[in-house]
Simulated scan of single mutants.
Amino acid sequence: MSVRELVVLGTASQVPTRYRNHNGYLLRWDGEGFLFDPGEGTQRQLIHAGVSSTDITKICITHFHGDHCLGLAGISQLLSLDGCPHPVNVFFPASGEKFYHRLRRASIYHDRADVHGHPITEAAAATDLHEVWAGEVGGKGLALSVLSLSHGVPTLGYRLEERSGWTLLPDKLAAAGLRGAVIKQLQRDGFVELEEGRRVNIQDVGKPRRGQVVAFVMDTRLCDNAFELARGADMLICESTYLEEDAARAKDHGHLTAKQAAQIAKQAGVRTLVLTHFSRRYERTAPFLAEAREVFTDGEVVAARDFDVLGLPKRERPKKAAAGAKPG
């Protein structure tokens, strides 16, 4: 069964609280499971969320501050303990490769999981979306790309994008006399040549289907790359460590406010904005929602809570990003 949803495992920033664990986000995408930024305690959070470690197929680390990576040690051991039956690919900034290896071998255990590390250089992700993985999931093409962000250490943002395609219309297929195996050929090649010399193109019997997009922007100041990662996203999972009253503090520490996260969502044409990575200085998230909603009025805003399960919005025609959108 096709499942596309975000399972929130933790929403705290540098220090967890009684109600917020360190970061952790599992994005289910049909047969794939993308685990973003497994902070300390992610192993236990998976259990509480009812998620098996064997659901994880990719791990994406934005940077090597502890709240975004310390859980990799426990997850590495859990994958082996549970006998994960498939390879797991781990993507991370190349500058932190020594930390990656330390976390993978943080203690003694029988390492029998098939885990592959993929270091990504700053140069590769500096100015243009850099594809780090592509495959076919549920019969549709899917690609994972990265861009560098503006934090105190090398940091990556991630963008998961489904290839656009076509939705075939039964009435037009019938009118064109197409059925059976020839329809699969049409989907594969984009056209079919019929025996009577007649050619049918896929656009004659279908309508464009925009692929879904999810963006993950964590630990950054406002920068052009954050807007590019979020462009046209159905869901943007975005740090909002501070409120606007602490904007100077946010800039000094390489973070965003809820208002700035909303600016990214608005100018990039996002549909659903998920706020997370809250500083422990704030007990409530209602002010984050209020601040973001004042700016981002065209879509949904969610202040994530640990163990929320958020479905991806159903496909629709994308909104146009504002012309010449730049950081404010």
Rank of each mutant, 00 (worst) to 15 (best):
L275C: 05
S95Q: 06
K251C: 11
V270D: 02
L149R: 03
N23I: 00
W133D: 01
P87C: 05
A181Q: 03
E161A: 14
D234W: 03
V132Y: 10
L243V: 15
H86I: 01
T272D: 05
H86K: 08
A125N: 00
C223T: 11
D111E: 15
T285L: 10
P287V: 07
V115Q: 02
L312Y: 11
S80A: 13
H118R: 09
S164G: 01
V217P: 03
M235V: 11
A215V: 06
D114C: 12
V90I: 15
Q14K: 11
L103E: 07
A134K: 08
T127P: 01
P16N: 03
V270R: 01
R159A: 05
A321Y: 05
N23M: 06
A290S: 15
A261L: 10
H110A: 09
S279A: 07
G152K: 13
L46H: 02
A322E: 15
D82N: 14
S2C: 03
L256G: 05
G50W: 14
L6N: 08
V270C: 05
G141T: 08
A233Y: 07
T241C: 12
F227M: 05
F34E: 09
V88P: 01
S107Q: 14
S145I: 04
I108A: 10
T272C: 14
V146Y: 00
A233R: 09
D308V: 01
C84K: 07
L129T: 02
I120L: 01
C238Q: 02
G299K: 05
L6Q: 11
R102H: 12
P93E: 08
H130P: 01
R284S: 13
T220A: 11
E97N: 01
Q43K: 14
D219I: 08
A181I: 02
G311C: 10
Q203N: 15
V182A: 09
P16G: 00
R20P: 03
R293W: 04
F296S: 11
K259I: 03
A322H: 10
A303G: 12
G139T: 09
L289A: 13
V301I: 13
S13K: 07
G206Y: 01
G96P: 00
G66K: 10
V51L: 15
L142F: 07
L81G: 00
V7A: 05
A262N: 02
S95R: 06
A290P: 08
I75W: 04
F278M: 04
S150Y: 09
K172V: 03
K319E: 11
V192S: 06
Q187I: 10
A258V: 09
L149W: 03
E316N: 00
I264D: 08
L236I: 03
D189P: 01
H130F: 11
S95D: 10
F64D: 10
R209I: 00
V309F: 01
A261K: 05
R28E: 11
V51H: 07
R293M: 14
R163A: 07
A230R: 09
D171A: 13
E161G: 07
V214F: 01
G206R: 02
R112T: 15
A174W: 06
H86S: 07
R249S: 11
E40I: 06
